[in-house]
Write a protein that binds this DNA or RNA. Structure first.
Lengths: 348, 348
DNA sequence: TACGTTCCTGGGAGCGCTCCCGAGAGCGCT
DNA sequence: AGCGCTCTCGGGAGCGCTCCCAGGAACGTA
């Protein structure tokens, strides 16, 4: 038996308008009426019908999360799970609900996109960046629906977005390796079709430049975020004899470690390794990985906040928010070993 | 500028009722009228307003996916990502949209639950099993909303569910180890608060019994699905000197391998290992893991199908569907090595 | 020709809410 | 006492759709 505003009103001896005011927490309701109505609502467990509310008010209270991941393997990386968790938590706290749109092909993207925006299913959309030039991005810009991106958009001054400090983090990793004395530093990258791939390479280059070093093109190989691709890329680099490598994701770094071990090279004694992400896997790797930790769940939560600000009109022009990263020093870079040596009396 | 049925009708020279019939693919519309209307719909890209539709028809076209994961770490396991992907794909194909409800505490569960069922947000719910005795489960049974479970429910004859063949798979793993000649076979389990934990232990025990063997309580330690817990559990078992172990998840098995290596034990020469899940990580482990592959994405898709059948009234009484698992033999169990040895002339 | 039957179409009613306007009560001021 | 203001509350209108009923056209049959 479904209750309506009218029912509650009848039970409380007021009109549906007054009940609506109580539920939506509006002023101009006398304290005792409010109390009386609230009590009935609590007692009956009444929840207003969402469809009717959105039809009348043109708002749904639903946020859409769009992940245009054509790369199926992305989901093998815990990254998306953690991102979703952060977004979900923030959405729960805000009292909104989350709709998930996972696309696997561009055809699917374009086919389902109108349903999302035109049907009034969602108030706004969070789009995770997948690759450059995603048609969804331009459609959303042109469309009427508010949206924010996780990851750097193609067109930065038209879109609000939140992103970890990929450039700064990668730069810090590079400088760290330089400071440890490594000269021939290699790079296992993320796909250049993704903004993470571009920005991490950029930061890495800057870091090397800071130290008067530069990336030898021979010492670079890109993967696709999977363990297997990190393994393959590292195998390629090993032939060129790097002293250290920066790997653009933890998952790939685990693969890189496997390749190094297989080649009989010790980490960090023969080759130093620093990676990016700060996933639990980095801690459990052998040896534990020095990594640039990015705040994944916080990134998701920040995106939700930004979208809500956009919806409430608090935000008018596009903004961006870059979340800081943090270098977590463990064993794979050799820093801890060097410290130990440094702490002992130098041999003549 | 939002279009309505009325607008489309005016443009096509028909009434909104006829347009509605065309959109909902009902009979009793003459072919040429249908064509004329359809053409205008295509040209304008008209999408009917979902809120109005659900208000009038009492259906939303939205499926709810509820993951009552109080264990945050669950999301570090690729399992949920792959499950979500399977569910999302099936939902997209069916033309429904997916709403995601991730709960982190029981308080949150109970607070948000009424919103899901009473507000008319979703037509039905897919609930992933987390632990036994989840209050959500009994509420959903009592509630009016159709739902199916992924994983075995507490009350099997009241709830429709889909589950991999945990019992059969674990049993097969046990028999496999027995057949390879291992006698002292240990067990690294999943939490007994989860149905996976219970059923995999059950199957494992059955398998040992099939071979006239039994699980020594000393050779059992449970983890919580994380790599770290597998590592810790294995460390515990190592002191008891098992000849082989069955680990109830790939992620834990990776941790177990780490513990074995750290203890100077070779796999499979000193200790044989078989695990469960068939995640990509099992293939990339060193050595590659022999594992019981469960069809994760298919499980999700099957849940969607089942829910849709429930919604359409095709299903009246609770049903269950058990999806087959498959033993994938790699190196960690020693089977490949034994084959090699078996292929050579036996030494006197 | 008259009548029944089937097929197609239009429009009223209503889903449960929000928004807005206007009425009434209560108050302080002149 | 009279006026204007604020505060509180009720009810009409309408959001865009589906459902249902009724009416007209077209056809076949007696």
């Amino acid at each position: 038996m479904k209750l309506t505003l009218e029912d509650i009103g009848r039970m409380a001896g007021v009109s549906r308008s007054t009940v609506s005011r109580v539920i939506n927490d509006q002023h101009s309701v006398s304290p005792d009426v409010r109390r009386r109505v609230q009590e009935i609502i609590d007692r009956t467990g009444f929840i207003p019908n969402i469809a009717a509310r959105s039809l009348a008010s043109n708002r749904t209270g639903v946020l859409g999360l769009v992940i245009p991941s054509r790369v199926h393997s992305l989901f093998q990386d815990p990254y998306f799970g953690m991102l979703i968790q952060g977004i979900s938590r923030a959405s729960n706290e805000a009292g909104t609900t989350l709709s998930l749109f996972l696309f696997e092909t561009e055809e699917e993207e374009l086919r389902l996109y109108p349903r999302i925006v035109a049907s009034g299913l969602v108030d706004g959309v969070i789009l995770t960046a997948s690759r450059m030039g995603d048609p969804l991005q331009t459609r959303l810009i042109d469309g009427s629906i508010p949206f924010v991106m996780v990851g750097r958009p193609d067109n930065q001054d038209k879109v609000s977005y939140v992103d970890p400090d990929n450039v700064g983090g990668a730069r810090q990793a590079a400088v760290h390796l330089c400071n440890l004395g490594y000269r021939r530093v290699g790079y296992v990258g993320a796909p250049m079709s993704t903004t993470a791939g571009i920005t991490r390479l950029e930061g890495f280059r800057e870091g090397l430049a800071d130290c008067g070093n530069a990336l030898d093109p021979e010492l670079r190989a890109d993967g696709d975020f999977t363990e297997a691709s990190g393994y393959a890329a590292m195998q390629q680099l090993i032939r060129r004899g790097p002293e250290a490598v920066f790997v653009a994701s933890d998952t790939m770094a685990v693969g890189a470690l496997r390749a190094l071990k297989e080649a009989g090279l010790r980490v960090p004694d023969d080759v130093g390794v620093v990676s990016f992400d700060g996933l639990p896997a980095s801690e459990n790797a052998v040896p534990p990985l020095t990594t640039v930790r990015q705040p994944i769940a916080e990134t998701g939560a920040a995106a939700v906040e930004m979208l809500l600000d956009l919806l409430s009109g608090k935000l008018t022009s596009p903004v961006s928010r870059i979340l800081p990263t943090e270098l977590v020093v463990r064993e794979s870079c050799g820093a801890t070993r060097q410290l130990e040596i440094g702490g002992m009396p130098a041999n003549p």
